[in-house]
Design a protein around this nucleic acid. Structure first.
Lengths: 233, 233
DNA sequence: CGTCGTCTTGATCTTTCTCAACCTGTGTGG
DNA sequence: CCACACAGGTTGAGAAAGATCAAGACGACG
């Protein structure tokens, strides 16, 4: 039993430390102190976190991992079309502040750690702790800044879109973690087309790749390919 | 001079009324009263409000009119690619809370009335008036809810995308006000393709159109066309 | 009435989607 | 430990869709 108690203490302490590192935890603490209502939960790669149209029960802060959002565009394939990636530091289901159902389907594409609370808790929390609304606002706006509008077919051919995407997301290591078929969807093309475009880039020596990772060999070359047609006018 | 003074009074009164009708004005008023720092300005159709990458000087609330956002995707055409519409009730340049340059180019596509203040004013305003952050957050989230992720080519053919778009935006009267060439861009297709797709819908009797407006004749037919292929699997 | 910008229509060519076969690494059960 | 099935990825050939180029129609406006 002594061991059990010590475990609880360790857990509580860990939570305090973790919350101090999280912007929401900090915002919550400001002024009053106390315990942030969000609690950790983990999901493993491939898990569906929620579906579009479902009643929003939880609002979550992503502590680690990658989540892909997809939305049914009145489309075939059951789960809709992927359109954005959410990483550590983003909120999931924050639309719960203004509506009652999820806007997107969310799927973990790596193991993820979330920090979640019920929609109602988050709502009342935001209304009673002043700094929190501001922090949430910042998180939402930051997330929004990273969402590049989806490039459609009329905005360059497949190879160009792949080149631009590689340039955008080479740093955060997405290329190595996202399944290729998800990347293709994010870029609005079929896996086959993505594969061919990538093969083209490899043939030109701009990147090298094996089955699970892509490495950029020449940023200049990618920029050239990505910008091709830019000033052709 | 008497006339001048009366004019000022009328103006002040008008401003108070206008602010009472605006969610930001109300949020500002809550608790302390006082004058909302945002002031009206109007722009006429076709005017560029700001450009991507420019230093953010103003943050605005749209009181009336339509604004199209476009973003340079490393693309040809000077001003980038249109990707979203902002209407009355949305904020422009709110990304100023988390960054110093505009994310998008913004162009008025109808005459617009904006209510604007400098980035610094809005920032300090948000930090000193608690309800405001929450209100702004709501506005941002609501706006986000309306942004459908851009449908790419792989998500149905041109006619389908046009049908879905008509269903989405028939109410607010966008079809009649947005230049067709902007609509095409929003849908990720060329004006020619849009024109042909529309001709197809007209041929089927789903809509009728003249050069500047589109009228839906049969919602069911549009839904059928929009959903075509959905369960074909 | 003529010019301009926007929209439409037509013909052709490029691209990507589609369908199908095949490859390759992973995990499973015998 | 091996055979096997399976999912994700690649490659190929053909068809369909949209992009491109070019010309013409229409309405707005001076």
């Amino acid at each position: 039993m002594g061991a059990r108690i010590r475990d609880d203490l360790v857990t509580a302490e860990r939570k305090r430390d973790a919350c101090a590192a999280c912007p929401l935890g900090k915002a919550f603490d400001e002024g009053r102190g106390g315990r942030c209502p969000l609690v950790d939960r983990t999901r493993s790669s491939g898990a569906w976190l929620h579906s579009e149209g479902e009643t929003i029960d939880k609002i979550s802060y992503i502590k680690s991992g990658l989540v892909v959002l997809s939305r049914d565009t009145g489309d075939r394939r059951g789960r809709g079309t992927a359109w954005a990636v959410r990483r550590a530091g983003s909120l999931l289901g924050i639309e719960g502040l203004v509506r009652s159902t999820y806007l997107d389907c969310a799927r973990a594409v790596t193991d993820v750690t979330l920090c979640s609370a019920s929609r109602e808790d988050v709502k009342s929390w935001i209304d009673t702790r002043e700094p929190v609304a501001r922090t949430v606002l910042d998180l939402v706006l930051l997330t929004q800044s990273h969402d590049a509008p989806r490039r459609a077919g009329s905005e360059g051919n497949a190879m160009r879109r792949v080149a631009l995407w590689l340039l955008d997301s080479a740093g955060p290591g997405i290329p190595s973690t996202l399944p290729r078929n998800v990347v293709a969807e994010l870029l609005g093309m079929l896996p086959e087309t993505f594969s061919r475009a990538l093969a083209g880039l490899i043939a030109r020596g701009a990147v090298e790749a094996d089955r699970r990772s892509i490495r950029i060999l020449s940023v200049e070359m990618l920029e050239e390919i990505g910008g091709a047609g830019e000033d052709a006018r």
